[in-house]
Design a protein around this nucleic acid. Structure first.
Length: 269
DNA sequence: TACCAGGTAAAAA
DNA sequence: TTTTTACATGGT
């Protein structure tokens, strides 16, 4: 067992909201007040503790993953200062005080998750992803290990169609499985180059690349301007914006946190 | 029933 | 070059 300190203010329940909002996700499983993930073949539980979280079990393999998951690199102090100068974001930040967005620790899992979410509702996407995990992944305690790319690469497209992927998305996932080993190097590249490389992959457009920057790499400047939910949130909080991409500049250099606060703000009235 | 939901690539104009 | 279309699921 290990205790990880998270800069105050921190609200674990609020920060993990997205793992409960759209249905059960076996790879990031909410169970009895704690979040479970399979890491290195172990069922790791993360739960709220005074001033941070408790992690069990914890070792040198688990800890970096958890630190990534918790979004510890986000500069919430800087974001709060920016929000305080914005008449809309300020009150929203106060209402969601303690929200530190959690990240998807694995680039392959992030990409597959985004592909499932293209065009369809997040509830529908979660249902399809759940079938993928329970069909090709592996149970590890109460959580499931997300199926590794090797487990998917050799699957027939028909098998993916059978669990709810469109034929087109089945091709995208198979292509991603074959490119998965090249995803880890993206970590060291600037935002623009990450996007440039990702959109070269079949099935990865600007929207998917933006969310990869935002929810896997946790890049401060990521701003998924094409996202329907974000467009609705911007319109709801600020009024219709002709150019949502340009609108993000008012949140610089904290576009990512602004986007996640706006989206969470729209979900939790 | 029909329509919309955190898009993308390919066909058609 | 720009616009239109097909796609699969879950909720309303």
């Amino acid at each position: 067992m290990l205790y990880i300190e998270v800069p105050a203010p921190y609200d674990f329940a609020l920060s993990s909201e997205r793992f409960r909002a759209f249905g059960r996700d076996p790879a990031s499983l909410w169970d009895d007040g704690g979040l479970h993930r399979a890491i290195a073949a172990r069922d790791v539980r993360i739960e709220a503790a005074p001033g941070g979280v408790r992690v069990e079990p914890a070792d040198e393999v688990v800890l970096p993953v958890i630190r990534h998951l918790l979004g510890l690199a986000f500069d919430l102090d800087g974001f709060r200062a920016l929000a305080g100068r914005d008449p809309v974001l300020g009150p929203l930040e106060q209402r969601l005080r303690g929200f530190r967005p959690m990240l998807v620790p694995d680039p392959w899992e992030m990409l597959v998750g985004s592909i499932t979410a293209q065009q369809v509702s997040l509830v529908a996407a979660t249902a399809v992803r759940r079938r993928l995990v329970e069909r090709f992944g592996r149970p590890v305690g109460v959580a499931w290990a997300f199926p590794p790319p090797e487990a998917i690469a050799s699957v027939a497209p028909d098998e993916l169609v059978a669990i709810g992927f469109s034929r087109r998305k089945a091709e995208y996932v198979l292509a991603a499985a074959r490119s998965a080993s090249s995803l880890t190097v993206l970590r060291g590249l600037p935002d623009d180059e990450v996007k440039e490389r990702l959109v070269r992959l079949r099935g990865i457009g600007e929207w998917t690349a933006d969310w990869f920057l935002a929810r896997h790499l946790g890049r401060a400047r990521a701003w998924p301007a094409g996202d329907l939910g974000l467009r609705k949130a911007v319109a709801a909080f600020y009024g219709p914006a002709a150019d949502v991409r340009a609108f993000g500049e008012r949140f610089a250099p904290f576009e990512n946190l602004a986007a996640q606060y706006l989206l969470l703000g729209l979900r939790t009235p």
